[in-house]
């Protein structure tokens, strides 16, 4: 009995009755602060591939070489909308939600560097890693065309019967080599640290 009274009281509250008859559901819109898929801003992409390296989802972002320069492209079926690429981009090419404003306000940034490792016992020296590496392709177009490189500026090269890593510091950590190695011989380690910018830098 007590509970029936409770329920009657509950359901004849003015607030509830008002809601029952006049409530409207929210329209199908996303709030402005929603981190949607990153969109391009006016800024020019330099092709540093930082966004590709920090992306945690496989195949979600690629920086493509278009006719008028570089341009990052998001693949919606892969992107998990974490917004890390937006935050990591040093040029502010991408924008999503209010990440750019917030990072500028908080003076936060990511500092990152990469390590490359090749397991010689697994490696077939097929050269897939060297040829697929976007940085290598940029530095030495001949490499992409013929599979060999005479340049000493590339990140890695088949030299002396094994994959030799010449310039680890040039690696942008995109993991293209790792994904295209059939034997999992090459591994890229991404070292990322979340930091605050110094006052002078900011």
């Amino acid at each position: 009995m007590r509970s029936i009274v409770y329920y009657l009281r509950e359901f004849f509250r003015p607030e509830w009755v008002r809601k029952f008859f006049f409530a409207k559901t929210a329209p199908l819109v996303a709030p402005s602060y929603f981190k949607d898929y990153p969109s391009l801003t006016e800024k020019e992409c330099t092709g540093c591939l930082t966004c590709m390296m920090i992306c945690p989802a496989p195949g979600a972002i690629a920086v493509l070489h278009k006719k008028d320069g570089w341009e990052p492209e998001i693949y919606p079926g892969h992107c998990i909308r974490c917004g890390l690429c937006v935050e990591a981009c040093p040029e502010g090419v991408l924008s999503s939600g209010r990440i750019l404003d917030v990072t500028r306000r908080d003076k936060t940034a990511f500092s990152s560097w990469y390590r490359l490792q090749v397991d010689d016992t697994l490696c077939m020296r097929c050269g897939n890693c060297c040829v697929s590496c976007p940085v290598n392709r940029e530095i030495d177009p001949q490499l992409a065309g013929t599979g060999t490189s005479a340049s000493d500026e590339v990140i890695m090269r088949i030299e002396g019967g094994r994959v030799t890593i010449l310039h680890e510091e040039k690696c942008t950590g995109c993991k293209t080599c790792e994904n295209n190695c059939p034997n999992r011989a090459i591994r890229v380690a991404r070292m990322v640290e979340g930091v605050h910018l110094e006052e002078a830098e900011a």
Partner: peptide
Amino acid sequence: NCPISGCVYAR
């Protein structure tokens, strides 16, 4: 994403 591409499990 998962049924489309496998998302983070597509490795």
